[in-house]
Design a protein around this nucleic acid. Structure first.
Length: 525
DNA sequence: GGAGAAGCGACTGAGCATGC
DNA sequence: GCATGCTCAGTCGCTTCTCC
């Protein structure tokens, strides 16, 4: 259990160490708004940013993108704020919730007709979506969200998950049929923000989080690969709090203006450059996905989902940009962005989206592709992959337990070993250290990355496969394979390379052969 | 410098797990 | 059922360390 926790911490740290510089992703107006919130609330800017763009999607009231592909992409985002209990996940959720409530209050929407939903089961969520198709669902705890699947019957969990997948890319009418009743949801538009503990979040990606018995394949529908995950770590708060700058628009202003600009169902397009670029990005992800499709479902799905994601993210960034710019242009009319008032409401009602506002440029798409890649890597790292090589860092925690000089020694042992193929299972037997096979495997992996050789499977025809490390052949023969071996041994080494290899496998016959040969040779002098 | 202890690696065999 | 891999306990021989 403690090693599990250790591995979880490693992944979180890895995610956090890969910094997202929002200055490179956002235009200056948008950054000013997001940064102001982060500084005044002392919260993680990554959380604030993610909750903001998801909520922004909600207030575009079902806007869509005539994308680079044949079909229209709805502007819907699912997101998870992932972090430990002290990483302040709830604060950003509260902040957007309050901003949304202010938006609805200004338009006189009664609380019971609010589009900010907090359903605790699939039943009520679908009923709400039936009543009003545009909902923002906030889950303060991911566990609650997971609990909504099949809360009445375990075999309905898969159905509900499937439905959730459909909400991500809804087509016209979505139906949910139960024995007693059925829901008909017309163009549902559900955006999700959930706060999740690292343990639960990682379980979702690996699929072990649900209550179904067959836990291994629970994420096979890729539901959680649709979620954008922002990871933050607990950090030291600033002692002095920064007062909000009233010259900088607040989230409530941003959302209200977005809502007013989208009173019609808007459709956005790319310009030619942007479209060409996005097509390239999509092609790259498609290639990566098909490369992985036969060997790794999870990665294949992650790449596939990145195709949809890069389009959605570019639209979200685009809308954030145009709305922020408009807000900053209002600074002269509005002396203070303190609270949402009727004066602001009047100004907003005059605003209309222009023709040019509907066109996404290359720059935004480029930034969106950076952001997509960043979130893709975060997901990979959370799932235990190395983002660059796509290798699974299997229980990397173990190497951390092994002292460095031990690792060095083992690497040297493998390198200097007369055999050029080393069977993994021979190591724990021969090197009597308190190191498991998994730990030796990680050392293999490291050596592979260092270019010392390659990890392969044994080439037996039947039965389970063993793991061998095939060393890279040295071009120049080094006579001093080991300073400790005497000359007699060295001669054995050079002549019986192959036999030594075989001896490392545990095939009895072959071992007998080898040992008899070895005995002969050693007995000779 | 030599004797003995300690450490290390090669190898065996048994029992068990796993895939065909 | 068979072939193979994995793990563990154990033996043997060699090297290195330590103490006198």
């Amino acid at each position: 259990k403690s090693t599990e926790k250790c591995e979880r911490n490693r992944r979180i740290k890895q995610c956090v160490s890969e910094k997202l510089d929002l200055r490179l992703i956002l235009d200056e107006n948008s950054f000013a708004i997001i940064n102001d919130i982060a500084q005044t609330t002392n919260g993680s800017i990554d959380y604030i940013f993610l909750t903001t763009i998801v909520t922004l999607c909600h207030w575009t009231m079902g806007a869509s993108l005539k994308g680079a592909q044949a079909y229209n992409t709805p502007l819907i985002l699912f997101s998870i704020l992932c972090g430990g209990s002290s990483s302040k996940k709830s604060a950003p959720i509260r902040i957007v919730k309050e901003a949304c409530e202010a938006v609805e209050a200004l338009d006189g929407i009664p609380v019971n007709k609010s589009s900010i939903n907090a359903s605790v089961n699939m039943e009520s969520l679908c009923c709400e979506l039936e009543k009003q198709p545009n909902l923002l669902q906030l889950w303060d705890e991911l566990a609650v969200f997971l609990g909504i699947f099949g809360s009445t019957r375990i075999d309905r969990a898969a159905y509900d998950r499937g439905l959730m997948c459909e909400f991500y890319s809804p087509t016209g009418i979505v139906r949910r049929q139960l024995v007693t009743r059925h829901n008909v949801m017309i163009k549902p538009c559900l955006n999700i923000i959930a706060a999740g503990h690292p343990k639960r979040t990682i379980e979702c990606l690996s699929g072990a989080g649900s209550k179904c018995q067959d836990q291994k394949d629970q994420n096979e529908d890729g539901l959680f690969n649709r979620f954008i995950i922002a990871v933050a770590y607990k950090y030291r708060p600033n002692r002095e709090t920064i007062e909000p700058n009233n010259k900088i628009p607040k989230l409530s202003h941003l959302f209200y203006l977005t809502k007013k600009l989208h009173h019609n169902t808007e459709e956005y397009v790319y310009n030619d450059e942007a479209k060409k670029f996005i097509k390239d990005v999509i092609y790259t992800y498609d290639m990566l996905s098909s490369d992985k499709s036969n060997e790794d479902d999870f990665l294949a799905s992650c790449y596939q989902k990145s195709i949809e994601r890069v389009e959605r993210v570019s639209l979200a960034l685009h809308i954030l940009k145009i709305c922020s710019r408009r807000l900053f242009n209002m600074v002269e009319d509005i002396e203070s962005f303190g609270i949402l008032d009727d004066r602001f409401k009047t100004i907003c009602t005059e605003q209309e989206l222009s023709e040019a506002d509907h066109v996404i440029d290359y720059d935004t798409c480029f930034r969106a592709s950076l952001l997509t890649k960043f979130y893709l890597n975060q997901t990979k790292m959370l799932a235990g992959y190395d983002p660059l090589t796509d290798n699974i860092l299997v229980n990397k925690k173990h190497t951390m337990d092994v002292p460095e000089n031990e690792v060095k020694h083992i690497k040297k042992y493998i390198e200097n070993h007369p055999s050029d193929r080393i069977l993994l299972s021979s190591l724990p037997a021969n090197l009597k250290r308190k190191i498991t096979k998994d730990q030796y495997f990680v050392i293999f992996r490291e050596m592979e990355l260092e270019g010392k050789g390659k990890i392969e499977e044994t080439n037996n025809v039947t039965g389970p496969k063993g793991v061998v490390f095939v060393k890279k052949k040295k071009t120049d023969h080094q006579p001093s394979t080991s300073s400790t071996t005497n000359q007699q041994q060295a001669s054995v080494v050079s002549t019986t390379n192959e036999q030594a290899t075989i001896a490392l496998t545990t095939n009895q016959q072959q071992i007998n052969q080898t040992s008899s040969i070895n005995n002969q040779e050693t007995n000779e002098p």
